[in-house]
């Protein structure tokens, strides 16, 4: 079976929602079991007392990337059919900065706040309520942001194309960087005073 299965028509579209539930379940389980339902555990990455976010995030990204590259190489999957978010230069950076500020205040991101809700964290419920309000505010004020939102679209460009590198070289460097960061994180954790949470 050559993937991606649904766009290739291997699995009919009617199964879409069932698959969404199952994959979401795996996502939620992995997040919660790693400790992403606790905002103070998440924030440990920024203060250096618990690098769980860094470890889980980069391990996951590298695992999925490696899987996609090998499956594409073996011909089990057509990686060129995968959806790539278009890169709007200004919008992506501004959005990222605003989200970072929200991260520092709220201690969650949308995915982890749903996990927090699942185990009864009231702060996660407030965070999610904030999400709804934020999206509503953005939509209502959209005419104000429209210019920036749509400016400088580079399309579904890959990072190694921007850097003028070969995909394989970039992927290799990313893996090495991730392993290096995991090593460094363990080092920092030993130095920083533990925070009880």
């Amino acid at each position: 079976m050559v993937g991606p299965l649904i766009p290739m028509g291997v699995i009919p579209e009617t199964w879409n929602n069932v698959i969404a539930l199952l994959l979401g379940g795996g996502f939620g389980f992995a997040l919660e079991a790693s400790g992403f339902s606790s905002s103070r555990k998440i924030m440990g990455t920024f203060f250096g007392y618990d690098f769980v976010v860094l470890r889980v995030f980069f391990t996951a990204a590298v695992t999925a990337m490696t899987g996609i590259l090998y499956f594409d190489y073996m011909g089990w999957m057509d990686a060129s059919m995968l959806y790539i978010n278009p890169y709007y230069v200004m919008s992506a950076i501004v959005g990222g900065i605003i989200m970072g500020m929200g991260f520092a205040l709220g201690g969650f991101c949308p995915g982890t706040s749903f996990c927090g809700i699942a185990i009864g964290k009231i702060d996660a419920m407030f965070f999610t309520a904030g999400l709804f309000i934020g999206v509503f505010i953005f939509s209502e004020l959209y005419p104000l942001f429209e210019g920036m939102y749509n400016s400088r679209n580079l399309g579904g460009v890959k990072i190694y194309e921007l850097l003028g590198m070969r995909e394989t070289v970039f992927a290799f460097l990313l893996i090495v960087a991730a392993v290096g960061m995991f090593y460094g994180a363990g080092f920092v954790e030993k130095k920083v005073r533990k925070v009880e949470y």
């Binding site: 490696t66 060129s80 194309e161 995909e167 290799f172």
Partner: peptide, 22 residues
Amino acid sequence: LAGIAISLGIGILFMPEKNTEK
């Protein structure tokens, strides 16, 4: 684990370049 990750990475290095990507 680090060894496995890096050897998978070295494997990636030897993959041929794809034309469709460009």
